[in-house]
Design a protein around this nucleic acid. Structure first.
Lengths: 186, 186
DNA sequence: TCACCCATGTAACTGGTTACATGATTAC
DNA sequence: GTAATCATGTAACCAGTTACATGGGTGA
């Protein structure tokens, strides 16, 4: 079975969404796909080069005044077909995220219950911050009413982030209760 | 900043939990940590070798009748300290899982709404299966009453899995509704 | 002056998977 | 006879990060 490399499709998707340079794509990902997709320049530029060689995109150098030169990418017909095929192909497996925090919790049996509870509290705090950040982004989408239809899919993914973060916060609450329950303390 | 490699700590944790061979550790991870940690033999054996060289574990060859030879690992004092330090050290960042499914959803703007809804339905089905699997494991822990205290931390991580899966299922429901809402169909 | 934004790119490295090799025993 | 379980290991590969290099413009 061939290894799944979705990076090229992410880039193709961004090109069709109007992001034409590697720099722009990186900005977009950092700003908006951040909670479910990350990428580094060390991946973007070689990947764009490869896409050009495959014929899925074309690159055009463009000189700018007062700014460095840039390369503008456009999707080709083959690229569009490839993206389409990828979009239609069903997801085989749900991603099994590695979770360092849960790994620690799992091995905390020998640790003091109260300090484990404290760890969970810290984690909960981080989740709450993340949740607030999502809410803030959501508010800024809603405030900018003119593109309410355009941002719909963005809203979907954000909602996913919000819901799973909230579930995490609730888990922390329940787990802290269990860890600090008086009868269970040694 | 040094790269986080938690694999050795996972192995140390498993050794302290009584799993002494690479094979046993792999079995355990596949069975019980599966939803938040994965590992392959290609990682386990070199990693155990490295741990031996570092002096965090000791290896002892043990011949068996009717079975292949195996190596039994034990944790050293230095290993115990290293594990302890790792357990106490706070998690810096919450893992940002890459999610192929959300990536597709994000780029589905040009697709037909109903076929996107169908995709979400498929995903929801997968989540439901996962949820049921978690529930079944949970039941089997509860049924085996003698070790109710021992399995507490196992229960915590399982509960996390259940809650986040349930949140995902609910998101699917809400998203399908939005995608198939009659007024929104073109 | 110093930091930050724009803009592209490479080399070295790390973490991890997959495929392969070996070989005995047990259960169908 | 053939598949599964037990058991260890390596080599090739792949995906991705980090650090580095370059260099002009903008604003405090």
């Amino acid at each position: 079975m061939s290894r799944k490399n979705n990076t090229p499709y992410a880039l193709l998707g961004l090109i069709t969404a109007g992001y034409r340079t590697g720099y722009d794509m990186k900005q977009m990902i950092d700003r908006s796909l951040n909670h479910f997709w990350k990428i580094s320049y060390g991946q973007i530029y070689p990947s764009l080069k490869h896409l050009t060689e495959t014929g899925w995109v074309t690159a055009e150098a463009s000189a700018q005044e007062n700014k460095p030169d840039k390369k503008e990418y456009r999707i080709t017909k083959e690229g569009q077909e490839a993206l389409q095929t990828w979009l239609e192909e069903p997801i085989k497996e749900i991603a099994a995220e590695k979770n360092e925090f849960l790994l620690k919790i799992f091995f905390s049996k020998q640790q003091d219950r109260l300090s484990t509870a404290e760890k969970v509290r810290e984690y909960q705090q981080k989740l709450k911050e993340r949740y607030d950040a999502y809410r803030a982004i959501e508010q800024s989408i809603i405030a900018c009413k003119d593109n309410s239809r355009d941002s719909e899919y963005w809203f979907f993914t954000l909602d996913y982030g919000k819901r799973s973060t909230r579930a995490g916060i609730e888990w922390c609450e329940a787990t802290i209760s269990r860890l600090t329950n008086r009868e269970d303390l040694d």
